[in-house]
Write a protein that binds this DNA or RNA. Structure first.
Lengths: 223, 223, 223, 223
DNA sequence: AATGAATGAGAATTCATTCAT
DNA sequence: TATGAATGAATTCTCATTCAT
């Protein structure tokens, strides 16, 4: 009688869904490490402990595999945001801070996910380029939403006339770009916590460098 | 009588230095469009209107070709900065603005250069990865220098005690990341001039979103 | 009903070990015919009736392929020697004769093997040159062993004082070189059997040309 | 007035014959070191201090260049033999010894020449293979001539009935092969002089191993 | 559910060779 | 006499993908 040896006692028969996730797990790592083109299906299959035909059976093609990675990681990022949104306070800049913080934590902790989502060079096929653009747009939309809420609800009631959705989008791009770049900065400053970095970024953006120079500092107020 | 057919009278003999630049010109375009790995030397040679062996004769290898692109574009960016530095005014935030503006104009106008310098994915060989890291560090150092000057000379005399080189580096990363990301934003907002984007970013960073919401806007003062 | 078309019913699926041997078989022929550098993996693959990627999948590289040939053929030669050693008689010069004879037969009959083992020019990479040198040393050691036994056990009991391992090695080199060269000679004297050539060489070396001129001839004594 | 700076004061105009020899000198070294195929015309031109087109102008092609090397080195070897022949004594085995000695000295001292003449693998084009075969035949003929004289004049008058030209050729092949192989042996025994090696080989062949074992040694008699 | 065997298509790189001056 | 510029044709090697079991 064949015992189901769960701990690698000769490769088990694994249900499709589970295998798929295993493959995607590995693929995200490999795509992040090597980039789309330099990543090889061979390596992914080997690290996943299965044969190449399985990869093709389940994910169709290298492109399909990458798309699967992309959409799963995008979902994860959105989920991280939504968690933060629920946890955020009432004051809009607190919500912005909470969202930014969640975003930062994600980017810092799930390097591979973020690299797959955001750092793929332009080297991609039409289909993939479109999907990447979509994923990026989704992320941007989340951040822009956060910013928009912060802006419109901030001034007490009436949103400042000169600020628009376009501004929110602008700010979102700036924030996401800054956050991405600060990921590198964190790489050379391992003592800095994501939370600390978030706070610094928040100060820089919300309070402004000019004010910071005059000693003004923003700290999330306890509600 | 043999006319000197300067305009493509069937492939001319071109002196080495000139050809090298032609090749690098094309290579920057192709590397930017496809990314290092997906770019093929074949394509580069063809677009440059020469045969592959010439590329290898002059630039040694795909890696050598990429390194040549990298260093030439890095030089260009540094030159743009230095032009701005000379043209900048006395007040430090004016200099920051001038530098940022130059940077922005470069990133916006030389998309390919910037992509080659900054958007190469993780997929690179040891040698290349090191060169890319170097180039990025050089850019960061320029921006950080700008910021540092802005910070230290700003407060009237005594630099704020709590601000350090680390802060300047932090801000530089945030700015470069934001600028990079805003390049994408500009792609979907073709009506926005680099100068306008710079101003907006400057406001966001220098004055702070909080202040902006209250109607405060920074404008480069005429000296 | 699908018949098992064993005789080329359009390229069969062949187990790895078998294919490897097929490839090596062909490669030995091609390397012998063309030399290491002039041999092309393309040609080897084509003659083996498979595609190039299989060659690389199984043997890793042209170098790997050559090394595989080298070691297989070296093993074969050693085996031929050992067969002869077991079959050889008691008297040492009989054993020398038997060994030499086996060697000769091998060199004459397995031209390709011998060429791969011994006739590769100086044009080889470090790794390969080392492997070739090793293989040659192994062959030499076999012959030198044969000679040493012949020498020491010959004189009735006490080995001649002035003869040493160095002498045996010297003689081995002379014999192997002579045998190699005589392979060419046999090419232009197809009527000569390897056995006859061995005998002649044995006479030349053992009895000496001077004696031969005086009519003395050595014939392997029946035990 | 342009002085003819013989010591490399900016590449001189050199008459054709001289340049040809320079090129061939270098080519022999390179062909010997790398083998025909692995040798590159580029390397040869560079080491010769001229441009590739000169090589083609003077020697026509890589093949032509190799053929030139081959024939020049063959001539040199033949010349070495003829010198020895004139210097040899009256007794036939003395002449054999003198010839063998000259041969050996040549092989030992002009490694590159010998390698080009004898160690080119089978990797060659029809034309070249033929030329190499010719060169080898010429060498063999010299040695065989030496041997034939030694044999026929040795016995006092009447040549031993059973010995023939074929025998001489056989012995020549054995000797040349042995000599070639002993070149390797000398590589690992740098203390051994070519003259000593010649003597040993002469003993082995002329007196015979069997006799040597009994203490008999042949020494060239002073006439 | 799973895989060992197999390949077409392209990648980087090198080489012998020629042209224009 | 001499050369810098240029290339067609290989060559080694890799990769995404499929077939037969």
């Amino acid at each position: 009688m064949t015992v189901n040896r769960s701990s690698e006692g000769r490769r088990r028969r694994v249900p499709r869904k589970e295998r798929e996730q295993q493959i995607i797990d590995v693929a995200v790592r490999v795509f992040a490490k090597r980039g789309y083109h330099a990543a090889s299906v061979d390596e992914i299959a080997e690290l996943a402990g299965i044969s190449k035909p399985m990869v093709y059976l389940y994910l169709d093609s290298k492109e399909g595999l990458f798309l699967a990675c992309l959409s799963r990681e995008a979902d994860r990022l959105v989920a991280a945001f939504q968690g933060a949104a629920r946890a955020g306070g009432a004051a809009p800049e607190l919500r912005l801070h909470a969202g930014l913080s969640a975003f930062f934590a994600f980017v810092a902790e799930h390097r591979d996910s973020w690299v797959v989502l955001h750092r793929q060079a332009s080297e991609l096929s039409e289909t993939i380029a479109a999907a990447v653009a979509d994923a990026r747009r989704a992320v941007m939309a989340q951040v822009a939403g956060l910013v928009w809420d912060g802006i419109t609800e901030s001034g007490g009631g009436s949103p400042p006339a000169q600020l628009s959705h376009e501004d929110a989008d602008f700010v979102a791009h700036a924030l996401v770009g800054a956050a991405d770049s600060l990921t590198d900065w964190m790489g050379s400053h391992p003592d800095q916590s994501p939370e600390g970095v978030t706070l610094r970024l928040m100060n820089m953006v919300w309070v402004g460098m000019g004010r910071v120079l005059e000693g003004e500092v923003w700290v999330p107020a306890r509600e």
